[in-house]
């Protein structure tokens, strides 16, 4: 940067240090942050300037919060050099802050202030905040129920799927018996079992756990199997000449070599199990975010639905992030893996 301004000065023939490039670089580095700040001030003003068309209790607080974010964005980006990694992270995300600020402003104006969007169906941001503050216990209960159901079903499905996949991949006899069953049952969407499962299982909770496990287990089984089956024979030859017993070949050769495939299966299983979870909660289980959504719809509480959707999306995304983090730890030896 300084080299640039120096040569600039020399070229113009005058030994003066131009201020313009410094200013330009300052604007380039902090300009987006200032813009973000402006966008969030606009959002704050849009909250406080006009009267709400409806009766919402959090408008004022939301406006104040928007100003706080604006201040943080401003100082965070301008003083980023003194804030270390947090400053850098903030500066990097500043363009997103601008877009979010603009979006929030438009949302606020289009709903709470002028009702350009039909009202009960498109609630303003403050009503969603209101859900998080006023309906928190019920929402937390739902989150807890969903996580519990999902985690139980997923862990069972992943474990069973992994063991089945390894067995099919390893043993011809197991493959002979399990493969046709897998082909017959696996492609069936787990949700198709819902009506039967709710009859045959003692509780809707156990039925849902079974269905989530089923949805997880199929992709995990198939990919683990294909992973084990595609392990190069050369690895087994090497291990055998070095004195490896069959158990070593399975545990220390086949499984580690198949792990990248297994994680693809775990990822796919996670996706399909989310779908089953929500449907199961909407239909049978009397708890969880799916049930909360259903319940909110029954009361035409649209703000609650959006609030629950946001939480659900954070949870699902968080689960995938966690899975990828585990994968990255276990598969450090791989190069060029996708970052989530």
């Amino acid at each position: 940067m300084s080299t640039y301004s120096l040569s600039d000065g020399l070229a113009s023939g005058a030994p003066r240090l131009s201020r313009a490039p410094l200013l330009a670089s300052w604007v380039r580095e902090s300009g987006v942050g200032i813009l973000a700040s402006v966008a969030w001030i606009a959002f704050g003003l849009s909250c406080l300037w006009w009267e709400d068309v409806g009766d919402w209790s959090r408008t004022h607080s939301l406006g104040i919060a928007a100003f706080v974010i604006a201040v943080v964005a401003l100082f965070g980006t301008v003083a980023a050099d003194y804030l270390g990694s947090a400053g850098r992270a903030l500066r990097q995300r500043a363009p997103w802050l601008v877009v979010l600020g603009v979006f929030m402003t438009l949302w606020e104006v289009a709903t709470a202030k002028f009702a350009w969007l039909p009202l009960p169906f498109f609630p303003p941001p403050q009503s969603i905040i209101e859900v998080y503050t006023d309906d928190l216990p019920k929402l937390l209960d739902s989150v807890f129920a969903s996580v519990k159901l999902q985690l139980g079903g997923y862990l069972i499905g992943a474990t069973v799927g992994f063991l089945t996949g390894v067995s099919i991949g390893w043993s011809r006899a197991v493959g002979y018996w399990v493969h046709p069953v897998l082909r017959f049952i696996g492609p069936l969407p787990a949700t198709a079992w819902l009506p039967i499962a709710f009859f045959t299982f003692p509780s809707s909770w156990s039925a849902s756990t079974f269905l989530i496990a089923l949805a997880t287990g199929f992709p995990v089984t198939v990919l683990t199997w294909s992973g084990v089956a595609s392990v190069s024979n050369a690895y087994y030859d090497v291990a055998r000449t070095l004195g490896a017993k069959p158990s070593f070949l399975v545990l220390k050769v086949a499984i580690p070599a198949a792990l990248p495939h297994v994680f693809v299966g775990l990822f796919m299983g996670l996706g399909s199990s989310f779908a089953v979870l929500v449907v199961a909660e909407m239909i049978g289980v009397k708890a969880g975010l799916g049930w909360y959504l259903q319940w909110a719809q029954g009361w035409a509480a649209y703000a609650n639905m959006y609030a629950a959707l946001i939480v659900m999306s954070l949870l699902c995304s968080g689960a995938i992030t966690l899975l990828f983090a585990i994968r990255d730890r276990l598969l450090v030896w791989q190069k060029g893996t996708v970052k989530w």
Binding site: V238, L242, P256, W333
Partner: peptide, 20 residues
Amino acid sequence: RPHPSRVVVFQDPTLFPWRT
């Protein structure tokens, strides 16, 4: 059957990529 007293080095190193 194979025994560690007779060890093979193959044309490809066939190192296990997941091991250091």
